[in-house]
Simulated assay, not measured.
Amino acid sequence: MTAHHPDTPRSGLPKRHPRHERRGEARLPGVIAALVAALLYLALPESLLVGPRYVLPALEVLLLIPLIAVNPRRLTRQNRFSRTVSLVLVAVIGISNLIVLGLLVRALVSTDVKDGGALLLAALQVWATDIIVFGLAFWELDRGGPVVRTQAPRSQLPLADFRFSQDENHDAVEEVSDGASRSSDWTPTLVDYLYVSVTNSTAFSPTDTMPLTTRAKLLMSIESIAALITSLLVIARAVGALQ
């Protein structure tokens, strides 16, 4: 009886196509994430808005339109224009959310808190947007972005920004190693990066996925600090105002 090699899938399992032969990630999850961030912004109190209420959400929708036109169903094509627009979209959501967080903190420390319920809700909206935007940022930057990760051979991928557990599981037991990056050509999707964002914003540090590059560490640091401010200062003050 021959031993099973960890780089070879077990018999009976369907053969996985190489990433450069796949259809790419679905477009819908990324669109939903961006639209949810826009809706969370629309629901903020008037005092926390960056300009007129509908300007930023309208800009985000306008940036989404060409991205959907390039890849309406699957993320398989990319050019310099679409790559720039996708990064600008993430930057617009992220910068505006950090400004909103600053306005929220200033309102709490410089005035009497009268509506603690509204402030608590606003803090939760900022925190949820924080998770979405940093998940999108990780998704867009790691290994060249969602298009490159599935359409380019692994040997041509840029250096990874994150090390997932699947990248190390090739020498584990069969039911684990068969799903590893080396054996199954696994690549992370938006859900994986949103999970990284959730754990980073709740633990204030990496958990099972480690940042490898300077930009990944910087982004995770910014997210952790923003989440820490939201949870320890904003939410605590808002809950205190309810008493």
Rank of each mutant, 00 (worst) to 15 (best):
T2R: 15
T2P: 13
D7W: 15
P9E: 04
S11I: 08
S11R: 14
P14I: 08
P14G: 00
R16H: 08
R23M: 09
A26V: 11
R27Q: 14
I32M: 14
I32A: 10
A37P: 00
E46T: 01
G51E: 00
L59S: 07
L59T: 13
E60Q: 15
R74H: 07
L75K: 14
R77A: 03
N79F: 08
S82L: 01
R83T: 02
S86A: 13
S86R: 06
S96M: 02
N97T: 06
I99D: 07
V100L: 02
G102V: 01
V109R: 09
A118F: 12
L119C: 04
L121E: 08
Q125F: 09
I132T: 03
A137Q: 13
F138T: 11
D142W: 02
R143G: 10
V147C: 00
R149F: 00
Q151K: 15
L157A: 00
F162P: 00
E174K: 12
D178P: 07
A180W: 06
S181M: 12
W186R: 06
T189I: 01
V198R: 14
N200Y: 15
T209R: 12
A216C: 06
L219K: 04
L219N: 04
I225P: 10
I235P: 00
I235C: 05
A236W: 12
A241Y: 06
L242F: 05
L242W: 13
